[in-house]
Design a protein around this nucleic acid. Structure first.
Length: 592
RNA sequence: CGGGGUGUGGCGCAGCUUGGUAGCGCAUUGCGUUUGGGACGCAAGGGCCGCAGGUUCAAAUCCUGUCACCCCGACCA
């Protein structure tokens, strides 16, 4: 690549619409350009980087025997209708019509297509297992694209899918992918954590995310400082206490608690009215109360269903956790008109005894995992100004089930070893999960087993954000001067700067630079040669630092002494090397 | 969808309060000087001042509406 003709324009100032470093620098250094919110053009330098990341992903996928194919990005509605995702995906999918008014979408993810492709071609257990992948442009109409290429509406993703005849096969395919992902993210140079995750809208069971650790990341996860446990907050499993015998607990009794519609006022009332009778003998605290929260679920088909939750009074509902639990339903606030429709619900004084499928209200009632049988609570008495004290789970009320919707706090016990958890943030770079049979069933993907019986194929699904990885690498590899690409990602191995005025006045400089470039290329290195004439050395140095190729070679003034200069972009170290040794020296440095 | 902000040459911005020839820096072109840290001088090209109405002799500037974009939140494999 020659900078005299490279399609490139570097900017001295940050673009006004860029906030995060990766976005600012990728635009300034001429790697990408914004076309529309969340939609970017890859310029020649940027495309080189993107291709290098793709290639690393491709090599590791091929290494586990996955086979690459490529589906269209433009897809018909029908397969997504069959799996329910045409509706479940909601406004996040780009939809369009053809001239005959037929419905199409731009693929946000391709489970349906992979499933149908296997169904189309395979029908025997002998064909399995098989893993297929593509590196494809995906489209999601994000409510708010942000941070440049980190969260776009058009992005490049590697997605792969495994197809197995049984659970054991799925476990093996999953593990193969997991190992491949570890290699991919190691090669990309990420600091990352593997956390337990929710399978979410994709359906399925076991699921892990690969998060690049970043203080400004969008995802919050917790990790245990003592054991290996780490999980996305959405997926944290609360450690449930032992079930206890409540035989000694006093019977439940209602107490008048006027003006106690909040947990704080309730605790004050309890300490005034029934001091010293808390389950633990100490003063009443928020942790002794059971807060009842009601929300309205809106299912993909539009039906609305109220959901009540019993949560320890000292905690808030975490909307992300709740959302993940009820997915694909959407959570809406429970409004005044909803209270009017359910007269058994007394705002501020709702309690478990009026809730549950078997109760008068018929409202589904789920409790926090901490609410195990035998635990004693204070909760609303379902009448204004009344609370029920010594309400024992399992004795005085029975919930319809358990829900992980309460907020997770740093210091909460690790579900695996009990140590206090720590919270941290990261950027989701990869997600692997065991889909199970959701898509195979919906699209009727079955094969004959050894005994001639039809069996539903079991699937796994595995994604890597390829374009996001480019942004993420930039995010973690820059300084005040510009980008700092790792060697295996850089758009070139060597950035060779010729600092002469022009070919007429500094023929040796340009000639030497040309010869070195040819020799380096002959040795298999890629070279970005700054052969621009009439450009001052300062400009060329600044550009080389902004562009961020790890090794910068300067051919200039020192040529009089028969030496060139090799600079390490990251450390800033520079050393002089005789021209005759330059190629060998650089090859050794680049090959490391 | 809620809150905040911004729309003026390719990029970054001033001008708007108080209406009257559209400006600055960078970038681009030409000439000359300069060439190891984003050089200097002279000259040049390039703007329906987001869009639509309105007020006015006159609107980038005032009024109404509208659109777009950015940031925070909600949302998000």
């Amino acid at each position: 690549m020659r900078m005299s003709s490279l399609f490139l324009r570097t900017l001295r100032e940050n673009p006004a619409d860029a906030e995060v470093p990766s976005h600012q620098l990728l635009v300034r250094a001429g790697y990408i350009r914004r076309v529309s919110p969340g939609i970017y053009t890859w310029l020649p330098l940027g495309l080189k980087v993107l291709r290098r990341v793709e290639e690393i992903v491709r090599e590791e996928m091929d290494a586990i025997g996955a086979q690459e194919l490529l589906f269209p990005a433009l897809l018909p509605r029908e397969p997504y209708e069959a799996t329910g995702r045409w509706t479940e995906y909601g406004p996040n999918v780009f939809r369009l019509k053809d001239r005959k008014e037929g419905d199409y979408l731009l693929g946000p993810t391709h489970e349906e297509m992979f499933t149908l492709a296997v169904k189309d071609m395979y029908s025997s257990y002998k064909d399995l297992p098989v893993s297929l992948y593509q590196i494809q442009t995906k489209y999601r109409d994000e409510a708010r694209p942000r941070a440049g290429i980190l969260r776009g509406r058009e992005f490049v993703m590697k997605d792969s899918y495994s197809f197995d005849i049984d659970e054991a096969g799925l476990d093996k395919s999953y593990q193969l992918h997991r190992d491949a992902y570890v290699r991919i993210f190691d090669r990309l140079g990420f600091h990352y954590v593997i956390v337990q995750a929710m399978a979410g809208a994709m359906g399925g069971s076991k699921s892990e995310e690969f998060l690049a650790t970043a203080d400004n990341g969008e995802d919050t996860y917790v990790r245990c400082p003592n054991c290996a446990y780490a999980a996305n907050v959405e997926a944290v499993q609360v450690a449930a206490p032992e079930v206890t015998d409540a035989a000694t607990a006093p019977p439940a009794h209602d107490e008048a608690t006027p003006d106690a519609a909040t947990i704080a006022t309730l605790v004050d009332r309890l300490n005034e009215l029934v001091p010293g009778t808390s389950p633990h003998g100490g003063p009443w605290a928020a942790t002794d109360t059971l807060k009842t929260v009601v929300v309205m679920l809106v299912h993909p088909d539009g039906t609305r269903e109220p959901l009540a939750m019993g949560i320890p009074g000292d905690r808030e509902v975490d909307e992300k956790r709740l959302g993940a639990q009820v997915d694909p339903a959407r959570v809406e606030a429970f409004e005044e008109k909803d209270f009017a429709a359910y007269p058994t619900l007394v705002k501020g004084y709702m309690g478990p005894r009026a809730l549950g499928s078997a109760s008068a209200s018929g409202i589904r009632f789920l409790v926090d995992p901490r609410v195990v049988d035998g635990t004693r609570w204070v909760a609303g008495g379902n009448a204004p100004g009344v609370h029920t004290v010594d309400l024992v789970a399992g004795r005085d009320f029975v919930a319809d089930g358990v829900i992980e919707a309460a907020e997770v706090r740093p210091g909460d016990p690790c579900p695996s070893c009990g140590t206090g958890l720590e919270a941290a943030r990261g950027i989701e770079m990869g997600h692997i999960f065991q889909l199970g049979t959701k898509y195979a069933e919906a699209l009727d993907l079955k094969v004959l087993d050894e005994s001639g019986k039809l069996r539903t194929v079991i699937m796994g699904s595995y994604g890597v954000g390829v374009s996001r990885a480019v942004a993420c690498i930039a995010e973690g590899n820059h300084d005040e001067l510009g980008l700092l690409w790792p060697r295996n990602i850089s758009p070139a191995d060597v950035h060779l700067v010729a600092t002469g005025k022009d070919r007429t006045r500094a023929p040796q400089v340009f000639e030497t630079a040309e010869v070195l470039t040819r020799e380096l290329e002959a040795a298999g290195l890629t070279v970005l040669l700054d052969d621009r004439e009439k450009v001052s050395p300062g400009v060329k140095f600044k550009d080389s630092e902004l562009i961020g190729v790890p090794t910068i070679v300067v051919v200039g003034k020192s040529l009089e002494n028969g030496v060139i200069e090799i600079k390490d972009r990251r450390s800033g170290e520079r050393r002089e090397v005789p021209v005759a040794e330059a190629v060998a020296e650089l090859v050794a440095e680049v090959r490391g």
